[in-house]
Amino acid sequence: MVQNYVFPASVSEAVTVLSTNRGKARIIAGGTDLLLELQDGKHTCDVLVDLTQIAELKNITEDNGFIRIGASVTHAQAAKSELILQHAPALAQACRKVGSLQIRNMGTIIGNIVTGNPAADAAVALSCLNTIAEVTTQEGMQTMPLEDMYAGVCLSCIDSCCQVVTHVKFPVKQPGQGSAYLRMEQRKALALPMLAVSAMVSVQKDSFEWARVLIAPVGAGPQHAVDAEEFLKGAPVTPETIAKAGQLACNQAKFRSSAIRGSKEYRLGVLPVFVERVLEAAVANARQA
C-alpha cells in the first residue's frame, strides 16, 4: 500500500529517494498502467516517486543530431509535436492510436516502453527509429538501446525501484529517409492492437539503401523482420520487392492464437499486406522530404 507520494524537483532527487527507500519506492510518470498494476497487486511499494513536476523531463527537443523525448512527455503531446511529425511520422501515427484521448493525455511515451508490453504502439514505432534510452541510477547515467530493454513478454529490464529512464532519443531524419506505423484493431478507440508494424527506410536513387521493419506482438518487445530487412538492402523500390518483403516478414512472425488479439492463422494472413502498406507509406514519407 502506498504510504507516501513525492514530487522530486530533479532527476538526482528522484534517484536519491529510490536509493534511500531500498526497493520500496517506485517511479510513476503517467501511471495509466502502473496504478492498475498496483491495484491488482502485481507490484507493491511504499513510496511513489512522481516525475511529472521535473521541468527537464517535460519536453521534446532537437539536441546534437537527435530528437530527445523526456519521461513525462505524453502520447498526446508527441502526436502533435512539430519535431515528431517532421522527424518521426511513425511515432506520431502510433501515439494517435494509444487507448483514448484521455489516456493519451496522461500516459507517457517512456511508460509505453517500461511497461514491457510486446505491442505497445509507441514502442513499436520507436524501435524502427533506432531509439536509445538514457537510464539514470544513483551511480550515474547509462545509455541502452530500446531493443535491450525487454526481459520477456510484459517484462522490462528496467527496475523502476532503482532506475529512471529520463529520456529516449533517436537520430534526426536525413534526406531520403522516411517512416510509418500501422496497426490492426477491432475498433478505432480503446482497442489493443491485434497486429502492429513499423518501418523506417532510406531510399537512394529508387533503391532501398536499408530498411528496418518491426512487427509485434510476436515476442518480447517489437521484433525485427530480419529476412525482409536483409532482402530489401539494395533492392529496387518496386511493388514486387515490397510484396516480397511482406511475404518474408512472416518468417519472423511467431504469432500465438489469442482470444484478445486474434488467431495465429488470421494474423499471419494479413501480415504481408500490412508490411507492404507500411513500407509504401514509409517510402512516400522518404520521397516527400
Binding site: Y5, F7, I28, G31, T32, L35, L36, L48, D50, T52, A76, L101, Q102, I103, N105, M106
Partner: peptide, 15 residues
C-alpha cells in the same frame, strides 16, 4: 484537468 480531458479513476489525488 488543466484543460485536458482525463480519466479521474487514473489520477492519483496527490497530483
Amino acid at each position: 484537468f488543466n484543460g485536458k480531458a482525463m480519466n479521474a479513476c487514473l489520477i492519483p489525488a496527490m497530483r
